[in-house]
């Protein structure tokens, strides 16, 4: 696979030399390939937010390097700026960054900073507003008039419209109702399929990670604890629980079944797998 983003021995220490000193990311190596959908998991304070801010050069590593398409993003100022556009970063609660008079202008802020042509900006704004399900008539409204869920969509469209090579989303579903979550979920997937963008999806919910990702990276105490396909990760569910992380509810049920002596595979992480597994057990009595 084609590698697009790589970090080598990345370490980041906040406030070095004071009593507040804290190493948030500790010698992390990580590679993302083109078109991958990666779930980045870890509980609060595990260093995931610090890590992702290195991907587009917002934070400078205390130690180590960040490479985009094989080039160090801190070798000069132009490269750092190019990294901002190559890696789109959606922060937590991105609706708090809206500032323009109209939704259109706000979504166009990123593309405009990239120095794109007017027609191209127009195309990208309209197209991405459609992807996130914003009706045309909203474009001329003030973002501050919209509901919370719609503001979130505007903010996401703002990053989508930059059409980055890698898109990092930090808890994009936080604080939304189930229907809102499902919508966000759907259009991130739609965008991924349409553009073949590498998506890094940060969450503390195993549920989402299990449903969405082809690859899951688990962080704990500033280090990468596990990295692999959902099958590989959830095969080690007991370790996840030991690290204080959640596992999907289905997996919890299967862990409990196994504990009670029923011969099932505890690496089950979706409801479909669970159904298939239980059916097999019922019919053949064999392990799934």
């Amino acid at each position: 696979m084609n590698e697009v983003l790589r970090v080598e021995h990345l370490t980041h220490t906040y406030s070095p030399g004071t009593p507040f000193e804290k190493t948030a990311v500790d010698h992390v190596d990580f590679t993302a390939h083109r078109g991958e959908f990666i779930g980045l998991i870890g509980h609060t304070g595990s260093g995931k937010s610090t890590l992702i801010q290195h991907f587009n050069g917002l934070l400078t590593p205390t130690e180590g390097r960040v490479l985009i398409n094989g080039e160090d993003i801190h070798q000069n100022k132009d490269m750092t700026r190019a990294a901002r556009f190559a890696v789109g970063l959606v922060f937590q609660y991105p609706e708090y960054q809206l500032f323009e008079e109209t939704v259109f202008k706000d979504v166009a802020f990123g593309p405009k900073n990239m120095g794109l042509e007017k027609d191209e900006i127009d195309r990208r704004v309209r197209e991405n507003c459609r992807i996130v399900g914003l009706p045309e008539d909203v474009l001329e409204k003030s973002p501050f008039e919209l509901s919370g869920g719609q503001k979130r969509r505007v903010a996401l469209a703002g990053i989508f419209a930059m059409e980055p090579e890698v898109m990092v989303l930090d808890e994009p579903m936080a604080g939304l109702d189930p229907a809102g979550c499902a919508d966000v979920f759907r259009f991130i997937r739609e965008y991924h399929q349409k553009h073949g963008t590498t998506i890094i999806f940060v969450t503390h919910s195993m549920e989402y990670a299990a449903q969405m990702s082809q690859r899951i990276v688990v962080m704990d105490h500033g280090k990468i604890l596990m990295d692999g396909t959902p099958d590989q990760i959830f095969a080690r569910s007991d370790e996840l629980l030991a690290a204080g992380l959640d596992v999907p509810q289905v997996t919890q049920v299967f862990l409990e079944l196994k504990r009670r002596g029923i011969n099932v595979d505890s690496a089950v992480y979706t409801v479909e797998q669970a159904a298939a597994c239980l059916r097999a057990l019922k019919e053949g009595g064999a392990a799934c």
Partner: peptide
């Protein structure tokens, strides 16, 4: 800081 980072991520200079 958060808002500045977010706007920098959108290319604000």
């Amino acid at each position: 800081n958060k808002i500045m980072s977010a706007q920098k991520a959108r290319g604000a200079d």
